[in-house]
């Protein structure tokens, strides 16, 4: 009879896994740091590049420190699901919060006050 899915035994993790993970993470960290401190990119470009480096380091640590993919398949599945919800929450919040002054015609409160005083005699 098929038992419910449990983690299957895997061979012990080699030490080198942590060494590789550590070295790659250090490189990624230094790279991101240098890119910002040396002002190589700016604005949206910088954000995307730093985000990408962060994601790369995330995957490195997931694989080499957390050994995701080995062992129970539920770990990878729940992780992906969690990330999906994380992205929905963070992206949704940013999108919504930026949009809440839509009817303010992209003005700051001070600008809007000036506009109303000037144009509508208020």
């Amino acid at each position: 009879m098929r038992k419910p899915q449990l983690e299957h035994r895997h061979s012990p993790v080699p030490y080198i896994s942590y060494v590789i993970g550590f070295v790659l993470s250090v490189i990624a960290t230094l790279m991101a740091y240098w890119l910002v401190v040396a002002d190589i990119f700016s604005g949206n470009q910088a954000v995307i590049i730093i985000l990408s480096i962060a994601v790369v380091q995330l995957i490195v640590q997931l694989v080499f420190f957390l050994h995701i993919g080995r062992g129970s398949r539920w770990k990878l599945a729940t992780f992906i699901l969690a990330i999906i919800f994380v992205v929905m929450l963070v992206a949704g919040t940013i999108w919504i919060m930026n949009n809440l002054d839509y009817n303010m015609m992209n003005m700051s409160p001070d600008q809007m006050t000036e506009y109303m005083e000037h144009n509508e005699g208020i």
């Binding site: 740091y33 910002v36 910088a46 954000v47 730093i50 962060a54 995330l58 420190f65 957390l66």
Partner: peptide
């Protein structure tokens, strides 16, 4: 390990991008 992973994103978004 999980806490270090969270820190990756704090480092990237709060300090690097925010800085």
């Amino acid at each position: 390990h999980f806490l270090d992973i969270i820190w990756i994103f704090i480092f990237s978004f709060v300090y690097l991008i925010g800085g």
